[in-house]
Write a protein that binds this DNA or RNA. Structure first.
Length: 907
RNA sequence: GGGCAGCUAGCUCAGUUGGUUAGAGCGUUGCGUUCACAUCGCAGAGGUCACAGGUUCGAAUCCUGUGCUGCCCACCA
């Protein structure tokens, strides 16, 4: 069968993909005689569209899973999406706002219905795009974090953690996003440097005698929070404030009396050394309030406007209030100065609004007990990070882990499985009933009276029988469902064959941004709920950036859309390009032109295949390669290309096992293009109809396609389908073919070295031709002077090869003197002469040779010093010394010959 | 404040556990269209491996320090 003249990816990709899918190749079932290999997708969120980060991430996973599938593993790649609570709610809210509808007017239930509708319509965009990328995910198993099964897992986990005393409700300073109007976890608050101001403000000292203008100066970046001040803190060692003891200060404007407290926490060097204490709006101050028994005054509403405790400023936005307060302080003569101050401030990771630290009643997970086994799992090497340096990042975070705020004041998500009995909530604390699903009474001072922790809504209060129950209005952090992904997707909490077979999974491929959000928490969840690690390897790939090093983002407009690139260059080109430039653990700097690499390679593969298939005679090729190899007499190029194939194959397998995807891709590229196409195919042309050529061309092509398939699935499939059938080449899809077996008896270092020597010889002859402007059609005569019998034999065996590739009419070799007027080139032990009667320009030749000789002399000098050094010869490995001695001997001959040549042309 | 990366050819980057003459792609120079491929072929030019010390027979590679660049973490208001 012949291939069309040009490869058109768009014509075949969709067809090939749907065929794979319809034949069920992506699906894996637990099969006992196969070893499992499973990976789970880092679930993209349903508001997402495919970006380059996804393209890189999923190409890597697809390479792994296709590789393992071909190797015969029960290869399962579990796909799915997460519900992205805040992000999705924001998207739907914005959509409704366009129609003039507000979330709160719609009501909770109707709003959630709207989100589901939106999800049904748009939530699978990313899935379709992953299919465009060629991902061989097991779509039959596609999961969503809000699916029934996964939701069940979430509730189960909440109740279990509660029963274990690891979930509590408490009043703490949390990160509050005033725009999304919800609490955020520490990880969801991203620190960014902002240029702010440091304001110096006088706080008057209350003087019983009255009238004297004494004050303490404090420095603050958020003057508006002074409305919630309850004290001034200074360091006990600070001499400046020694005599403040027993004094009282007055809060400007509100005129509240403030205590002075002494605490070593206060940094004497910062600002004035006096710290205003605002327990409801700052974590440090909150800590001080607990320690010193101070009141906590929250002065803000949910939208960060000032509340009724803020006096005249009520209703103002926090930044408005800041300005107004500064103005008022100026009027009263209490404002000293403001100076520019750059500092890190938390921002909402979804909407980038400045986070307001704020006292709030939220649900938390106690993390320390969960972290301990997760630390151990990584320390002991049961879980390995690639590259290894992420281990330290992980451990540092884990060892300093803080409790996880899991409640969100939004509507889209898993609702917290806690119900409050209206009647019981009026009972005194000692009578309160807190009943979990397991029936064990629990107690928690903050959880509220009459609370019932239950996976399903109870009919009535177990204590008083009242049916007036209200569910907690909050939903759980999206990551509270994602952290269960590796087992909830396989059916947990129900035991299943899938779970038993595929868990723990093998490798997790993800981006560094997500180590804390997701990777660390999955490890904790896996160990807590399955008593086993969720995966063995964590491969962290780099961030995709544009060519200036900026992270790609829609708002910056520097995005290179993978779907555009697929449209322009084809999926395989996209995949191969991005993989070949992604070094393990390094960020990827992308520009559109980089995709040409993959496109050109695809083109090369196509044309080489087309050429081979045009010339193949199906009756010649139906042999087993091993049988053929034993029976046939092979030429050096034939032995060489087989050796190179299997060397490459071994290297590629090793690289994939070590997550060195770019090295694998580049090894294949080098082999296919620069060895197979550039040399072997050129060599084989004159004898292409012979049996040996036929078999070897066919086998190399066929095995190269299989080796390449994980990287470039579509083009390899398209060619495979048109390939003549033979032993080992069935009509079935290439994706279910076995990974080629390494025939190590065909790997020969000597053959590879010999061929390398011939290639060097041919290259140098071509070089002489180029230098002397000999037209390609003109055949020259060449004389090669050789003293080494082995090299002479090598040349004798391959004389036709050299003659044809170097376009030589007349080749003499052996012990020959230099012919008159010839150009010279020295290659290893060979002295190559090209007679150029009348053509030779001695000045030009002189320059060339002098330069060459100087290079040789320099090398000789350094070699001699090294070899004369006793330390070197005695300490270096024998191999190295031998090699260098060989090189020296060769170099000595070369220099001798070179100087003879130089003498001859009068130097 | 703590930590992590990067600095190699004009550009973008590889460089295995230290060991011959440091590589690729793009760009560039010369030649080439007799039919697999111009998304191509052949040949070339181009590098003090950021800097300074150190370890070693030997350093792009290991150690220390410096300088830029980028990233992550962090309760100096």
């Amino acid at each position: 069968m012949e291939l069309p003249k040009a490869y058109n990816p768009h014509e075949v990709e969709d067809k090939i993909y749907s065929e794979w899918e319809s034949k069920g190749y992506f699906h894996a079932e637990p099969i006992l005689d196969k070893n499992p290999y499973s990976i789970v997708i880092p679930p993209p969120n349903i508001t997402g569209i495919l970006h380059m980060g996804h393209a890189l991430n999923n190409t890597i996973q697809d390479i792994l899973i296709r590789f393992k599938r071909m190797q015969g593993f029960g290869a399962e790649w579990m796909p799915g999406t997460d519900h992205a609570g805040i992000a999705t709610q924001n998207v739907v809210e914005r959509r409704l706002a366009k129609e003039g509808i507000k979330r709160h007017n719609l009501g909770r239930e109707k709003f959630v219905d709207e989100v589901w509708k939106w999800r049904d319509e748009y939530g699978s965009t990313i899935i379709r795009q992953l299919k465009k990328l060629g991902c061989s995910c097991d779509w039959q198993r596609t999961r969503f974090t809000m699916d029934e099964g996964l939701s069940e897992a979430v509730l189960e986990v909440f109740v279990r953690l509660y029963d274990k005393g690891l979930i509590y409700k408490g009043n703490y300073i949390i990160n509050w996003c005033p725009r999304c109007q919800t609490a955020l976890s520490d990880e969801e608050s991203q620190h960014k440097d902002v240029d702010g101001m440091l304001y110096h403000i006088k706080y008057p000292i209350k003087d019983p005698s009255g009238g004297v203008d004494k004050h303490v100066v404090i420095a603050t970046t958020r003057p508006e929070t002074m409305l919630g001040d309850v004290a001034i803190a200074v360091n006990p060692k600070d001499d400046r404030y020694k005599d403040l003891k027993n004094k009282t200060l007055v809060l400007p404007i509100l005129n509240r009396e403030l205590k002075i407290i002494y605490d070593g926490l206060v940094d004497m060097k910062f600002g004035t050394g006096a710290l205003k204490v605002t327990p409801a709006h700052d974590p440090v101050d909150f800590g001080l309030s607990l320690k010193h028994g101070l009141e906590q005054i929250n002065v803000m509403n949910d939208d960060a406007t000032i509340n009724s405790l803020g006096g005249d400023y009520e209703g103002m936005d926090r930044f408005e209030a800041r300005e107004a307060i500064i103005e008022d302080l100026k009027e009263r003569g209490l404002f000293i100065k403001s100076e520019p101050h750059r500092h890190a401030v938390g921002h909402c990771y979804r909407c980038h609004t400045m986070v307001e630290p704020r006292l709030s009643l939220q649900w938390f997970v106690k993390m320390k007990p969960l972290a301990q086994p997760a630390i151990e799992a990584v320390r002991s090497g049961k879980i390995k990070f690639y590259p290894e340096r992420w281990t330290k990042v992980y451990l540092d975070w884990m060892e300093n882990i803080r409790d996880w705020c899991i409640s969100r004041q939004i509507w889209w998500g898993h609702r917290i499985p806690v119900y409050y009995c209206k009647k019981c909530s009026s009972l005194r604390p000692k009578d309160q009933i807190l009943r979990s699903a397991s029936g064990l009474p629990q107690n928690d001072g903050n959880i509220g009276l009459g609370a019932i922790i239950s996976k399903s809504r109870p009919d009535k209060c177990p204590k008083c029988g009242s049916t007036e129950l209200e569910q907690d209005p909050d939903v759980l952090d999206t990551w509270f469902s994602s952290w269960l992904w590796p087992f909830s997707t396989f059916g947990w909490p129900k035991e299943s064959k899938d779970l038993e077979y595929f868990y723990p999974t093998d490798s997790l491929v993800t981006a560094q941004e997500i180590i804390f959000f997701w990777v660390a928490r999955m490890i904790m969840a896996g160990l807590e709920f399955r008593h086993d690690i969720p995966f063995k390897n964590v491969y962290i790939h780099g961030t995709v950036r544009d060519i200036t090093g900026t992270k790609m983002s829609k708002s910056l407009g520097n995005v290179i859309d993978p779907l555009d690139m697929i449209q322009k260059y084809g999926t395989d080109a996209l995949r191969f390009s991005i993989i070949s430039i992604t070094t393990q653990g390094q960020d990827v700097f992308l520009s559109e032109s980089k995709f040409e690499l993959g496109r050109n390679f695809a083109n090369k593969i196509w044309n080489a295949s087309r050429f081979i298939m045009m010339n193949l005679k199906p009756e010649e090729i139906s042999v087993d390669l091993c049988v053929f190899y034993k029976g046939a007499k092979l030429t050096l190029p034939e032995k060489w290309i087989l050796s190179r194939l299997y060397s490459t194959l071994g290297y590629v397998g090793k690289c994939l096992d070590e997550f060195k995807f770019n090295e694998a891709a580049n090894a294949i590229y080098e082999f296919v293009w620069h060895e197979f196409c550039d040399w072997y195919i050129e060599i084989v042309k004159p004898t292409i109809n012979e049996k040996n050529s036929q078999v070897i061309l066919y086998k190399i092509l066929e095995k190269s396609l299989r080796m390449l398939h994980p990287f470039m699935p579509f083009i390899t499939e398209e060619i495979w389908q048109k390939l003549p059938r033979s032993k080992g080449v069935t009509g079935e899809s290439i994706m279910v073919q076995p990974w080629p077996h390494i025939q190590s008896e065909m790997i020969s270092k000597k053959d590879e070295d010999d061929m390398k020597r011939l290639i060097e010889l041919i290259t140098s002859i071509r070089n002489m031709r180029a230098v002397w402007n000999i037209e390609p059609r003109t055949k020259t005569s060449v004389v090669i002077n050789i003293h080494d019998s082995e090299v002479e034999k090598l040349l004798a065996d391959n004389v036709d090869l050299v003659k044809s590739l170097a376009r030589i009419a007349d080749l003499k070799y052996g012990a020959h003197p230099k012919p008159e007027s010839s150009a010279v080139s020295i290659v290893g032990n060979m002295e190559v002469y090209m007679p150029l009667e009348g053509l030779i320009d001695f000045e030009k030749e002189k320059l060339r040779l002098v330069k060459e000789e100087a290079r040789m002399q320099a090398e000789m000098k350094s070699l001699t010093t090294r070899l004369n050094d006793n330390n070197f010869t005695s300490r270096a490995p024998r191999e190295v010394v031998e090699k260098q001695e060989e090189r020296k001997a060769e170099l000595a001959i070369q220099i001798k010959k070179m100087s003879e040549n130089l003498k001859e042309i009068g130097v």
